[in-house]
Design a protein around this nucleic acid. Sequence first.
DNA 1: AGATTGACTGCAT
DNA 2: CATGCAGCCAATC
Length: 116
Amino acid sequence: MPAGRRRKSRDKSGLYARIYSVARQIPPGRVATYGQLAAIVGRCTPRVVGYAMAAVPPEEGVPWHRVINSKGEISFAPDTERYLVQRDMLEAEGVEFDERDRTDLRRFGWPGPGSD
DNA sequence: AGATTGACTGCAT
DNA sequence: CATGCAGCCAATC
């Protein structure tokens, strides 16, 4: 790996790789918020995490469906197919939604890396 | 190079 | 609890 050159990580190319790397650590049945991932990745913001999730290649093994917004809700309009697909996958893992279509982050929220 | 958009968030109303 | 607004960073046009 290219030693030297660190300080503030200018690896913009590795930004997505970092985000995916963290996302892959989210265990089944748990969900993480964009802001949480951004904080763990560092030098990143929720917007970028969302953009990265939208750009996840299908075979990367990244559980993009376990990433939701800070309100504990899926960030797609409820009447879209993408929303239904994501919700279906989460429920299949045991994540529950209330009548407001929100999950309880205190129960299903991912504590963070190393909580395995 | 400037403007616009997007799977966001926190705070004020 | 719903809505509005500003701040945020990268990708696209």
